[in-house]
Simulated scan of single mutants.
Amino acid sequence: MTQPPAVTAQMLIRKPVAEVFQAFADPAVTTKFWFTRSSGRLEPGATVTWDWEMYGVSTVVTVKDVEENSRILAEWDPESPTQLEWRFLPGEGDTTLVRITETGFTGTADQAVAKAIDSMGGFTMVLCACKALLEQGVLLNAVGDAHPAGFGD
């Protein structure tokens, strides 16, 4: 590799940009499709903890910048920090393209690529779950069902 990997996942969501932006900024919505608990909203300068209680894991997220209804820039996982950027691009007919990019993967080339691949799959799942919730009112529980107990690795 000549540079660390970067991953981007994106999804068109057929809802207005303000509603889609709030789905990621407001944990009252995000906990319905991604993590199970958050210590606060994604807003400029905030440091919040996200919990996935079903897996017994959590991470700290530091918000670097927010452009309302347009962009969220954050860093997560203080032990091996990477940068996250959400872009919310308004489209015709009250549609929004959500683009999530993660950069800064570290470790050996094999480790960085493995982390990037895992992240890409995770963000794709999160975007699908968000789309189902906002467009259809369906709680997919995709993140909670991704690694069910009793099935091994």
Results as ranks from 00 to 15, higher is better:
Arg14Ile: 01
Lys15Arg: 15
Lys15Asn: 07
Lys15Thr: 05
Val17Leu: 02
Val17Asn: 00
Glu19Leu: 04
Glu19Ile: 01
Phe24Glu: 08
Ala25Arg: 04
Ala25Pro: 05
Asp26Val: 03
Asp26Asn: 14
Asp26Leu: 03
Asp26Cys: 06
Val29Lys: 02
Lys32His: 10
Phe33Met: 04
Trp34Tyr: 14
Thr36Asn: 11
Ser38Phe: 10
Gly40His: 10
Arg41Trp: 15
Gly45Met: 06
Gly45Val: 06
Val48Asp: 08
Val48Gly: 10
Thr49Glu: 13
Thr49Pro: 02
Trp50Phe: 12
Asp51Tyr: 11
Asp51Gln: 13
Trp52Asp: 09
Glu53Asp: 15
Glu53Ile: 08
Gly56Pro: 13
Val57Glu: 14
Val57Lys: 13
Thr59Arg: 09
Val60Ala: 12
Thr62Met: 11
Val66Gly: 01
Glu67Tyr: 04
Glu67Gln: 13
Glu68Thr: 04
Glu68Lys: 06
Ser70Trp: 01
Arg71Cys: 04
Arg71Phe: 02
Leu73Met: 11
Ala74Gln: 15
Ala74Gly: 12
Glu75Gly: 13
Glu75Thr: 15
Trp76Thr: 09
Trp76Asp: 13
Pro78Ala: 10
Ser80Gly: 11
Pro81Glu: 10
Gln83Ala: 11
Gln83Leu: 09
Glu85Asp: 07
Glu85Ser: 06
Arg87Phe: 01
Phe88Arg: 00
Phe88His: 00
Leu89Phe: 01
Gly93Pro: 09
Gly93Ala: 15
Leu97Cys: 03
Leu97Met: 11
Val98Gln: 03
Thr101Ile: 09
Thr101Gln: 11
Glu102His: 05
Thr103Asp: 05
Gly104Phe: 04
Thr108Val: 12
Thr108Lys: 13
Ala109Asn: 13
Gln111His: 08
Gln111Pro: 04
Val113Pro: 01
Ala114Ile: 11
Ala114Gly: 14
Ala114Leu: 11
Asp118Gln: 15
Met120Gln: 14
Met120Trp: 10
Gly122Ala: 08
Phe123Pro: 00
Phe123Val: 03
Thr124Phe: 08
Met125Thr: 13
Met125Leu: 15
Val126Trp: 00
Leu127Ala: 07
Leu127Ile: 08
Leu127Ser: 04
Cys128Val: 09
Ala129Ser: 14
Lys131Cys: 00
Lys131His: 04
Ala132Gly: 02
Gln136Ala: 14
Gln136Pro: 02
Gln136His: 14
Gly137Gln: 01
Gly137Val: 03
Gly137Glu: 02
